Amino acid sequence: MTDDTEYLLEGDGTDIRALPKISLHDHLDGGLRPQTIIELADELDLEVPSTDAELLGDWFEAQSNSGSLVDYLKTFDLTTAVMQTREGLARVAKESVLDLAADGVIYGELRWAPEQHLARGLSLDEAVEAVQDGIEDGLDAADAAGYDIRIGQLVTAMRHADRGLEIAELAVRHRERGVVGFDIAGAEAGFLPSRHRTAFDYLASQFFPTTVHAGEADGLESIRSALLDGRALRLGHGVRLAEDIVVERQDEDNSYVSLGLLSQWVRDRRVALELSPSSNLQTGAIAAWGDELVDHPFDLLYQLGFRVTVNTDNRLMSATSLSRELALLSDAFGYDLSDFEVFQRNAAEAAFLPIEDREELIELIEDGFDEA
Rank of each mutant, 00 (worst) to 15 (best):
L9N: 03
L9F: 09
I16Y: 07
R17I: 02
A18H: 12
D29F: 09
G30Y: 11
R33D: 10
Q35A: 12
I37R: 00
L40C: 04
L40R: 15
A41D: 10
L46A: 07
G57R: 03
G57S: 06
W59S: 03
E61T: 13
A62I: 00
S64L: 05
N65Q: 15
S66Q: 01
L69W: 00
V70I: 13
D71I: 12
Y72R: 00
T85E: 03
E87S: 10
R91H: 08
E95H: 11
L98V: 02
G104M: 11
V105G: 12
I106K: 09
G108R: 06
W112L: 00
Q116D: 10
A119Q: 14
R120M: 10
D125I: 07
D125Q: 13
V131C: 09
Q132E: 14
Q132M: 13
G138R: 02
D140L: 07
A141G: 07
D148M: 06
R150P: 10
T156L: 11
M158N: 11
R163D: 15
A171C: 12
A171K: 11
R173I: 05
H174M: 07
V179N: 06
V180Q: 04
F182Q: 03
F182S: 01
D183N: 12
A185Y: 04
G186Y: 10
A187Y: 00
E188Y: 01
G190S: 05
R195A: 07
H196A: 01
R197S: 13
R197G: 03
T198K: 14
A199S: 07
F200R: 05
D201A: 11
Y202E: 01
L203A: 08
S205E: 13
S205G: 12
Q206E: 13
F207T: 14
F208R: 00
T210H: 08
E216P: 07
E216F: 03
D218Y: 13
L220C: 11
I223L: 00
A226N: 07
L227N: 09
L228R: 15
G230H: 04
R231H: 15
A232Q: 11
L235Q: 02
G236C: 05
G236E: 01
V239F: 09
E243H: 14
I245H: 06
V246D: 10
E248D: 14
Q250G: 08
N254Q: 13
Y256W: 14
V257D: 11
L259H: 11
L261I: 06
V266H: 11
R267S: 14
R269P: 06
L275M: 15
L275G: 02
L275E: 08
S278V: 02
N280E: 12
I286T: 01
A287V: 05
A288K: 10
W289F: 12
G290T: 14
E292D: 15
L301M: 13
Y302E: 13
Y302L: 08
Y302C: 06
L304H: 12
R307F: 04
V308T: 14
T309P: 00
V310Y: 05
T312C: 04
S318N: 07
S318W: 00
S321E: 01
S323T: 09
L326R: 03
A327M: 02
A327Y: 07
L329I: 11
S330W: 03
G334Y: 01
Y335H: 09
F340A: 06
E341H: 09
F343K: 01
Q344K: 00
R345D: 05
A350K: 08
A350Y: 09
A351V: 10
D357F: 00
D367C: 14
F369A: 12
E371R: 14
A372L: 02
